[in-house]
Amino acid sequence: MKLYFKYMSILLKSQMQYRASFWLLSIGQFFVPFSVFAGLYFLFERFGSIRGWSFFEVALCFGVINMAFSITECFVRGFDIFSNLVVSGDFDRVLLRPRSTFIQVLGSQFEFTRLGRLLQGVIVLVWAAVNLSIRWTVFKIITLILMIISGIFIFTGIFVLAATLCFWTIQGIEVANIFTYGGKEISQYPLNIYKKWITRFFTFIIPFGCVNYLPLMYLLDRTQYNYHFYMLTPLIGILFIIPCLGVWEMGVKHYRSTGS
């Protein structure tokens, strides 16, 4: 963990060498999802609601997912652009160092400018939270925070899986976008607006349901019973990272036997 922060500080130092472009890019990142959010707003203005969800309820979801995603993009960037490490052969260097491959790849890159996007996620979240008639309790706030954390773990897991794919194919890597960016896109709306198979896939295979639809039901007091279960679903999302790490280890093993 200490090593992770060391990596972070050296890369922050690197990016600060280009200070002006760093800040401009951060500001740019703040505005990027703005147009997407504007599109969402206009659709609600036109249609009123989506399968019984109001604008601010969806905005809450949007805020949570975008916060989780931007934090992941910032701190797990090493896995996001892992294909570069494989193509350039620098992954060999990782294997030459007496530390786990996971921590080294994690530390190989940070994209601090994504924090601009985080800020927008925060603003949307706060705006939605204030406008919704939720009676906020300590448990609800904990659940909300857990939703964000769980989202970070799920996105990290997906990034790790996508990176693992690089050990087999570099070109096919774009397909991973379905789960990274696609996962983000899809879970900006509560999952039950989609067809059953999509909802099921993104609940039971990739547990996005655990960060938006299920805990949202609890936050909005829409559960009649079992509300403890709904409250704790984000914890299940966190567990998603475990099989992903297993797959990563398999990928490293494959790489070391083929060296491609």
Partner: peptide
Amino acid sequence: DVPVIDSYELLRDI
């Protein structure tokens, strides 16, 4: 992008 000594310090931790 960082001075050599910073790289060395990081290697010390690695």
